[in-house]
Computed example of a mutant assay.
Amino acid sequence: MTARLLPFSDDPIRPSAPATVTIRLDGAPLDGVAGQSIAGVILASGPLAFRRTSVSGRPRGVFCGIGVCFDCLVEVNGDRDVRACQRRAADGDVVVTQHDPLPGSTA
């Protein structure tokens, strides 16, 4: 699957150029469109996984996309456990991927 963003000129309901936002994911700048969720900006930039499970370290990204599950948890501007699918990206947001070992583990 290839990440892509439809050109705004092809969208009949959005005739003018959208405002852009830039967020940083683990230090790398990612460009998005104003109004996109943080998950949307990340997915449109290419990465499909941005969290790892506590038990086996398996990659996770957006699963439900509506805030029901917890597969898209990230840290945003120092706030942990933010659902990336529910938070709109704001210009300058600093996003850090999360991996929390199980309580009592040494990992």
Rank of each mutant, 00 (worst) to 15 (best):
S16M: 11
A17T: 11
A17N: 09
A17Y: 05
P18L: 14
P18G: 11
P18T: 08
P18W: 14
A19K: 15
A19W: 00
A19C: 08
T20I: 03
T20V: 10
T20G: 11
V21P: 05
I23R: 05
I23Y: 14
R24N: 15
L25F: 13
L25S: 10
D26H: 09
G27D: 09
G27N: 05
A28F: 05
A28S: 09
P29I: 01
P29R: 09
L30M: 15
D31W: 05
D31V: 14
D31L: 09
D31Q: 10
D31K: 03
G32N: 10
V33R: 13
V33H: 00
V33S: 00
V33A: 04
V33Y: 06
G35T: 08
G35Q: 08
G35F: 08
Q36W: 12
Q36M: 11
S37E: 09
S37K: 03
I38Y: 03
A39M: 04
I42Y: 00
I42H: 02
I42G: 02
L43K: 01
L43G: 00
L43M: 07
A44Y: 01
S45W: 02
P47E: 09
A49I: 00
A49C: 11
A49S: 11
T53N: 00
T53F: 00
T53S: 15
T53H: 05
S54M: 03
R58Y: 00
P59F: 03
P59M: 06
G61V: 04
F63K: 02
F63R: 05
F63A: 14
C64A: 13
I66A: 10
F70M: 14
F70K: 03
D71K: 04
D71A: 13
C72N: 05
L73W: 06
V74E: 12
V74S: 11
V76H: 12
N77D: 15
D79P: 00
R80F: 03
R80I: 04
R80M: 09
D81S: 12
R83T: 15
A84H: 07
A84S: 15
A84Q: 07
A84D: 09
Q86A: 15
R87K: 11
R87P: 04
R88T: 09
R88L: 14
A89R: 06
A89W: 07
A90C: 12
A90L: 13
D91M: 08
D91C: 12
G92A: 09
D93R: 11
V94Q: 14
V95I: 15
V96P: 01
T97N: 02
Q98M: 14
H99T: 02
H99S: 06
D100K: 10
P101Q: 01
